[in-house]
Design a protein around this nucleic acid. Structure first.
Lengths: 313, 313
DNA sequence: AGAAACCATCGCTTGGGGCGATAGATGCTC
DNA sequence: GAGCATCTATCGCCCCAAGCGATGGTTTCT
């Protein structure tokens, strides 16, 4: 034995204190009265503290006993936490979860799912990375993240599995002060190419040379969606944005939608997928999170519902 | 045994994980390597979780093992807290401390001492009551409070011990709009008696009929020092206040000092005492707090020092 | 190849946890 | 007040899990 006082000692102490009687405490734990008596005498000796006043018929906690009772509860409660955690792990729950999400993924959908996740799996630490485009892929490949959330794969290695989550509507926009904004008719590619396009980029090598929706050779590359947003509003160029991000701008006129000849009906959508390595599929927690990132499983939050209504008119 | 997993299991787990080796972990705990091996196998079986990957030469924690290691540390750490607490109690430290303090006790001295107390005895819950005059005595008599802090005892039962703490300077004041305020010469008792005096009182029976510094038969009795303060400032009467409470009022003129004929040199001080039942003297924590309530042991806080300087010009 | 670690497994011993019995004390009931 | 029920303390006994030492297999370093 490494230490005189054990968990069983504390459990017997708690039972006796709760029941107000050694005998009753013993009954609760299916132990004889004698072991309770001996154990508590032993515990008192180990701690050097009188826990019970035995002068009356049934023992009553001393003040010291009351103080240590709270400590004892804390100890066994912590042990119960450990066992609960172990139970989860033995059922296959992953000990922690790292996820990387593309910036263009709808924020409210993400926050709603993550909030629900924390409530559902409070013991599972969740680490969230937000990256752009190809930068999502890298941590998934290396295994640092259990899965990633990203748009159409520029290059889809065979070792990856992807699973459709939802679609992000896309709009090409510009500031109302921008020359393109005054053109009502569908804009042909030739005209587009004459104006600087703002393009989201990232620092990874995986998406090098793989451009998505780039119509102009005159481009500025921005690694941050918020920066791109600000540049667009400042009239420094035109480019595509998720409609969810710019809808208030479109409503109040600080950005206007561009009608492109190449994109009929402005119906551009980008499908978003959960992507993970086929050899290490997500465990229960990761799977749960993936399910709750799908469009059908929006959180009951009001904002999410409103957003969905706008997405499917 | 009430439960398969014990504290010793966790301690062995922690040692092995820390050392990165079963043998080294065993050495640290003065146990054979075989018991470490067996114990960990047993623990893994109990929890249903593989803690170590034994495929390589020296075992390495699995992800689950890493997660449970943190939990294990939490459990034994909580147990260490319990034992530390028990150690304090066995050394005679009281499990908790209740104290009742008279409102007129200098606030900064009190807060300083209490703050230092919480730092010195973080495990000892401190309950503080603030009462007026005789109301301080009652919880001390009944034993609900280990000691009380109060002014001169109106009636000093022999079963109480008192110990001097510090002196509170006292001033008789009134609003500048009050008729007495315009009298420069020392005011005789006869004149005082013609004006309403505001007197601090309390709801206990112990101070019934025992008035302190009452010169007028026309009195209003206030159970709250703050209320008395407000009444004085409103010009509703005259009365005594601790100088510490009214010094800013005296400085900015919202109250003026009265020069009483009965009280030469305005040198009225009220000695304050720690009072406790002789049969239950305070333990180490209580004694520590009493020492730090004395005037010489002011906290190093700037305000307290400044206040003391003003008190002893 | 050999030494030196490491871990798993197997008997063997032993100490503490648990049981039952007993005795003394206290409170309830008739 | 006698009898009964229930409580705690203590004793002797049993037994299992914890611990030990030895053995064997494996990896790493020299």
């Amino acid at each position: 034995m490494l230490d005189g006082v054990s968990l069983d000692h504390l459990r017997i102490f708690i039972a006796a204190a709760d029941e107000g009687s050694f005998s009753a405490g013993g009954r609760r734990l299916r132990r004889t009265q004698s072991v309770v008596s001996q154990t508590l005498a032993n515990l008192e000796a180990q701690l050097g503290v009188k826990l019970f006043d035995r002068s009356s018929r049934s023992p009553v906690l001393t003040r010291q006993g009351l103080a240590l009772l709270a400590e004892a509860r804390a100890v066994v409660s912590r042990m119960d936490v450990l066992k609960a955690r172990a139970k989860g792990l033995s059922d296959g729950l992953e000990p922690d979860l790292s996820v990387v999400v593309d910036v263009v993924f709808p924020l409210d959908q993400l926050t709603g799912a993550v909030a629900a996740f924390q409530e559902k799996f409070p013991a599972t630490p969740l680490t969230l990375y937000v990256e752009a485009l190809g930068a999502v892929l890298q941590p998934v490949m290396t295994g640092r993240c259990a899965f990633g959330v990203m748009g159409s794969l520029p290059t889809a290695p065979g070792q990856l599995t992807r699973e459709r989550l939802l679609s992000v509507r896309w709009a090409f926009v510009a500031s109302p002060t921008h020359p393109l904004a005054s053109l009502k008719a569908p804009i042909p590619a030739g005209v587009l190419a004459q104006h600087r396009q703002l393009v989201l980029t990232d620092r990874s090598e995986l998406s090098q040379g793989k451009d998505f929706g780039v119509f102009s050779s005159n481009t500025w590359r921005l690694a941050d969606l918020g920066a791109k947003h600000a540049f667009l509003r400042a009239g420094l160029g035109w480019g595509g944005m998720p409609t969810g991000v710019v809808e208030t701008d479109l409503a109040n006129g600080s950005l206007v939608r561009l009608d492109l000849e190449e994109v009929p009906d402005a119906n551009l959508v980008m499908a978003m997928f959960a992507v993970f390595r086929t050899d290490t599929p997500p465990g229960p927690a990761g799977r749960w999170l993936i399910e709750h990132l799908k469009s059908g499983s929006a959180t009951p939050a009001r904002t999410a519902k409103a957003k969905r209504a706008r997405f499917q008119p």
